[in-house]
Design a protein around this nucleic acid. Structure first.
Lengths: 120, 120, 120, 120
DNA sequence: TTTT
DNA sequence: TTTT
């Protein structure tokens, strides 16, 4: 309803987690490492991203751990009840509505043990 | 270091919390209510904002509970050790670098007991 | 295709210009005054906004000259051939995909000769 | 003074144009190609970027024709008097305050005659 | 904890 | 004038 815009560039922390619902909708979850400069040097913030539909499918097909991406989306909180304490807890999530694939996977993947080829 | 841009418009939840450090720096904390449309209607996300220096002082002088503001900043996580469990916990914070005061205070302030006049 | 995000807050320069197409689509044109700080003081940049569909209709119903709004969109260039010289000319346009109505019209309208009432 | 945020990702059209002023300040001009999807396919918008100071120097050192970059800045208009007609003309410029170098130079540089190595 |  |  109100302006809520987030733009981030970073590297993906793990291969995407895709889920197909019976309704036909598709959801993809990613984690994104974004570097920030602090007084003491550099720090990495990890963000949880959520993608739906066509954007989720593109992520599932082309995004892999280490890949550099840019996203546009909005910031929200997922809330739930803690099973043990019953307390309400929340976690920030970036709802992604645009995904840009940057550079090549090779640039960013330090884990070369994963030698699966890419097919673009 | 990397692109990390957040733009939000919302209403402030409480009067600003200002802290003056011995070093001369000023810090202001605010909470911001931002409305989001969901499938079931409307939902409010609450964000923690952090402002420093000149921007903090402007907030301290002109922002009050209920006021509509726009901000530009970046999203980071504050992390700390939980005193009880020792576990690392984190909380998202918007580091604000620009603040826009919107509308007039009267538009947003339901608490008319504070009848001090404004001079903009 | 690529990330192209613009967020602006400003005041509308004239009443919106709405056009209904035979196809059923709706287009709205607006000009927006955005203040910028320069070395010599303050300067106003005027932007041309283009809105379509539901967003255009909201603008047509609620936006008037002087109203403060926030928009999210992307920046593009309209290009055309100059009739006289045949040269290609271009003009920047903000393609708006989200519109936020801020404050009230009264706050911003210096032209009180337009006394048409508002119906919100 | 007011919120005016632009985020763009694209490829640089020519090598950067750097100018050192006697005052010690540095200015860099770039053109950026940003792809946009239209009804008929894909279209490229060309933006003029202006960078100052440290950011200008980074661009001068690391940005070359073809390189993919991301920028954060604000949109303004440069205005001047047309020498022939005396009419006021204006041209949109992106005032850049953050620059992100994406991918590697090799990804974007078609001109391999410049074989100087990079040391990032 | 804010608003419409 | 850049790229895929």
């Amino acid at each position: 309803m109100s302006i809520n815009v987030v733009t981030l560039i970073g590297r993906v922390g793990t291969d995407p987690d895709i889920k197909y619902f019976e309704s036909g909708s598709v959801k993809c979850k990613l984690t994104l490492a974004v570097n920030r400069r602090t007084r003491d040097g550099e720090h990495t913030d990890w963000f949880n991203l959520e993608l739906w539909g066509k954007t989720a499918e593109v992520a599932g097909n082309y995004v892999r751990k280490g890949r550099q991406i840019a996203i546009k989306g909005s910031l929200k909180f997922d809330t739930w009840s803690d099973r043990q304490t019953g307390a309400t807890r929340s976690s920030p999530v970036i709802q992604v509505d645009q995904l840009d694939l940057l550079g090549s996977k090779r640039d960013g993947d330090g884990d070369m043990s994963d030698s699966s080829p890419e097919h673009f």
